[in-house]
Design a protein around this nucleic acid. Structure first.
Lengths: 218, 218
DNA sequence: ATAACATTACGTGTCGTAACGTAATTTATA
DNA sequence: TATAAATTACGTTACGACACGTAATGTTAT
């Protein structure tokens, strides 16, 4: 419980250039080789340093990769236009876009590798999954406040229905989820949880002005 | 392209008792240690044999574990009572039950380990994921034929919406999916894809005779 | 005095495979 | 039909390869 003194430890300070060099090298190796073939020596070699420098910063390979991916994920923003259907379509795109920034053959193996240790699994969720999920949750809450969705909608279940579809396509099928499929899924779900689906549909048409959208089902 | 001659190869035949001993030992080790800590020597030791006996039968550890899990999965049956809502609730339970038979900390790592090689990924899907999915697909097809679901329902998308929820809960959250959540999800989806949701709900009540079911939303 | 740095090296564990002699079964030959 | 040859699985043992995580050492920066 030391004050801010702990921030400036004695001795030679860390070289922050090595931090970013290691994270960048990790991302490069992940892109090329995937998580399974990532070796710490290769990461260190590309960063122009060596293994001990890695272990000084992150206790395990999982922590290193988590930090690298979180760096790439960046911040997640969320639309709030007042048009529930538009927002949800956009919101799912937030999910999809977030995972498109992740190299394939990385997320699944990393999660699997983190699943055994509870603390690591929590870190994985906090750093990679919760941000986009929380963004969609904010959209749903706004929609409920507007009266667009039934008040007894179960937030967690709806979030899982939306998010799990994306995760499923990312982790299981290599089939990328298309924008059309996102719209279909949102339409189906909205029929189930909206107070007045036709009104939302109409509102969406006015808002977007794009007459080609949302006309598949009437 | 030899006839049935190839079935009976020359030389000493495989000892089928070793086959089952190895598969059982694999399941035992998976239950205790999970996929990550499974070593082939431990499997061989418990089966009363040695590593080469494994490699004579399965080319990789992944194939061995796939065969062991498929053995436990067994056959997947499907209800067809004519009550769409009942069948779907039952059908999702098929998914859930199938995965309940799988030890935790196994499916995710195994999938991750199979994800890099396309042939292995296909085997994983064929042996573990497609059977329950196909069962639910048959139910949906029946429901469409009965006129309970809209004809333009996208089968694959609906299947993914149903199945991905289960996968999500199994692989990501360690929270087991409850029967109540299954019912909620089915209700939400049916509102979106049914031709006449109130009629399905009424039919379900008559069929089940259980007045406590499906009364959460009216 | 302290701690990060680069370098080097070590012990460990598991992998996948390769020997080797033995046992069991099919195929060819006497 | 009997016997030999060929073939393949079996257990045992051992090996090289690889990456892990850590430790030791001397140097450099605070």
């Amino acid at each position: 419980m030391q004050p801010s003194r702990a921030a400036t430890r004695a001795g030679r300070p860390r070289d922050s250039q090595i931090d970013v060099a290691l994270l960048d090298a990790t991302l490069a190796v992940l892109d090329e080789s995937g998580y399974g073939r990532l070796t710490l020596e290769e990461v260190a070699r590309r960063a122009g340093t060596t293994k001990p420098a890695i272990y000084r910063r992150w206790p395990t390979r999982q922590h290193l990769v988590l930090a690298a991916l979180a760096r790439r994920l960046g911040e997640v923003t969320v639309p709030d236009t007042g048009c529930t259907m538009c927002d949800l379509n956009e919101g799912i795109s937030v999910f999809v876009a977030a995972f498109r920034r992740m190299p394939p053959d990385v997320l699944g193996p990393l999660l699997a590798d983190c699943a055994t240790r509870d603390e690591l699994r929590a870190d994985f969720m906090t750093m990679l999954f919760d941000p986009p999920r929380a963004a969609v949750e904010r959209m749903l809450t706004s929609a409920i406040a507007r009266g667009d969705l039934r008040e007894d909608v179960e937030l967690d279940l709806t979030l899982d229905l939306l998010g799990s579809l994306v995760h499923y396509r990312v982790l299981f099928g290599h089939a990328p989820i298309s924008d059309a499929e996102i719209e279909r899924a949102v339409e189906t779900l909205l029929r189930g949880i909206a107070t007045d689906y036709p009104r939302l549909l109409e509102h969406s048409r006015e808002q977007s002005g794009d007459s080609a959208t949302h006309q598949l089902h009437t």
